[in-house]
Amino acid sequence: MRMPNNRFVLFAVLWFIAAVYSLLFRESDGGAPPFAHFDKVAHFALFFAQFWLLAKAFMQDRLAVPYRLLFVLAVLAAAGSETAQALFTRTREGSIADGLADVLGACAALWLADRVSSAKRVVKKPLNADKAV
């Protein structure tokens, strides 16, 4: 499998570093969230952005997006993230619901990437490709 080499790879790496910092090294201030289950929305959005950037890196270089590999990576990252929060932070806790929100965010991003890739293939198809000459 050929790996992409474009700005979206850099964005994905920077996003990952920011996520690790915000989830593990920056302790929660204990303030009230803006609305109920705000943390689930934040987990969903965090993983959506991460896996959209990864998929976009492949699409930008016109490579096949490895959906299964990215899904497995999402599950492992979610499990690792929640385990690390449970073990290494004082003000955060690991949660199966947060892990599920992580995986759902990644799945939504991968689904969107598949839809975008499919739409691009249809648009690039020649208009008279269906008709035999």
Rank of each mutant, 00 (worst) to 15 (best):
S117T: 14
F58T: 03
L70S: 03
L127C: 05
Q60E: 13
R92P: 01
N6G: 00
V20Y: 02
E82M: 12
D61L: 06
V72P: 04
Y21R: 02
L87D: 00
R90V: 15
A64D: 13
M59C: 03
T91D: 14
F58G: 05
L76T: 03
F16S: 15
V65W: 03
L63D: 03
S22Q: 08
G80N: 04
D98S: 02
I96Q: 09
W15D: 05
A108M: 07
A64I: 08
A42K: 13
A86C: 04
F58Y: 15
Q50E: 14
Y67K: 09
A109C: 09
E27F: 10
E27K: 03
K131Q: 14
T89Q: 00
W111G: 12
A12N: 04
V103Y: 00
R62P: 00
G94T: 06
L70M: 10
K56Y: 08
I96F: 13
A57P: 05
R26F: 08
K124W: 05
A86N: 12
F25S: 08
A108D: 00
D114T: 05
A57G: 12
M1E: 12
H37I: 03
W15M: 06
A18W: 07
S81H: 09
F35I: 10
L46F: 11
L127M: 12
V75D: 00
Y21C: 10
V13K: 09
A32W: 08
F44I: 07
G99M: 01
A19E: 08
S81I: 01
N128K: 11
R62A: 14
I96C: 10
L110P: 13
Q50P: 02
A101R: 05
F35P: 09
A101F: 10
D102Y: 02
R68M: 13
D98F: 15
L73C: 09
W111Q: 13
V133Y: 12
F88C: 05
A74G: 03
S95N: 03
Y21F: 07
A45K: 10
K120S: 09
D39Q: 04
P34C: 11
W111E: 07
K124C: 14
A36E: 14
V103C: 05
H43S: 03
A19V: 06
E82F: 06
I17P: 04
A86G: 15
A64K: 11
H43V: 14
E82V: 01
K125H: 07
P34S: 05
V72Q: 07
V13W: 06
L76Y: 09
F47H: 12
T83Q: 07
R68W: 14
S117P: 01
L14S: 13
W52I: 12
K56L: 15
L127N: 08
L69W: 10
P4M: 11
A45N: 15
F71D: 00
P66E: 00
F88L: 15
Y67A: 05
A106S: 02
A64W: 03
D61I: 06
V72W: 06
V123F: 13
R26G: 04
V41C: 04
A113W: 01
T91V: 02
G31W: 07
A55E: 10
G80E: 07
M3D: 11
S118P: 07
L87K: 10
L100E: 08
E93F: 02
V65H: 00
V133S: 11
H37T: 06
Q60D: 01
R2I: 15
D102K: 08
A86W: 02
S117C: 10
T91H: 15
